[in-house]
């Protein structure tokens, strides 16, 4: 095994991540304006941007889902218990003692088990909750939502609760970038795509021989 800098986030993945980031930030700010939590922007502007950003994000997710399954990258997000507890233990205790992160990034497994579980939860629980409720909310006129304050209210409740949960995720996600060696070191892989990964000799040989652009 040797540590090498390998392209683990392809150009599409990085584009996906950063445009998703921008769209989610837009959606949070405009969404909470629509909800009435702040008056920093007018309702009309908020609804316009919220709707446009939501539709753009749905399109992006459609592409991302297709990409995940066609490239097989979805396997990175499969939940596993192996190493999960040691990572959790690390964030709860070890990190304060100056221990090293227990997880070694692999070429086929770029996220640590806790990270993978968090992303999976986001992908299969929070995101569907928000887009399904969001589409029902947006299309209230198509199913008689304007005549039934109860059902529309529950849709709004699910939508808003999911939004709060996503905001909590964003806060934690950004905070965790400050752990480890440096903030920059954590962010750069999502900028240029390269990160230090443990490679088996076979992986190293394959990359050097067949994908020289993906290894440094």
């Amino acid at each position: 095994m040797s540590k090498r800098r390998v392209l683990i986030f392809t150009r599409f993945e990085r584009l996906w991540h950063w445009s998703q980031m921008a769209l989610i930030m837009t959606l949070l700010v405009t969404g909470f304006a629509v909800h009435g939590l702040h008056q920093a922007i007018g309702f009309e502007v908020a609804v316009t941007w919220h709707t446009a950003a939501a539709l753009a994000l749905l399109l992006l997710w459609a592409f991302a889902t297709f990409w995940l399954f066609t490239t097989g990258t979805w396997r990175h997000f499969l939940p596993t218990q192996k190493g999960l507890w040691s990572v959790a233990r690390y964030y709860a205790f070890g990190i304060f003692k100056g221990e090293h992160h227990p997880y070694k990034k692999l070429y086929r497994r770029k996220h640590n088990p806790l990270q993978a579980l968090a992303y999976l939860g986001l992908k299969v629980v929070l995101f569907p909750a928000i887009w399904i409720s969001g589409l029902l909310y947006l299309g209230y006129g198509l199913w008689g939502g304007a005549g039934s304050s109860e059902s529309l209210m529950w849709i709004a409740v699910v939508h808003t609760a999911a939004a709060f949960a996503i905001l909590a995720f964003v806060i934690t996600h950004v905070y965790l970038l400050t752990t480890g060696h440096s903030f920059r070191e954590h962010v750069m892989p999502m900028v240029n795509g390269f990160d230090e990964v443990e490679l088996t000799p076979e992986e190293e040989a394959y990359l050097e021989h067949d994908e020289p652009g993906k290894i440094r």
Binding site: H35, G36, L152, M153, V157
Partner: peptide, 9 residues
């Protein structure tokens, strides 16, 4: 009788 975004939650 109506859920009004921005007013009701």
């Amino acid at each position: 009788g109506v859920y009004l975004p921005g007013r009701d939650s």
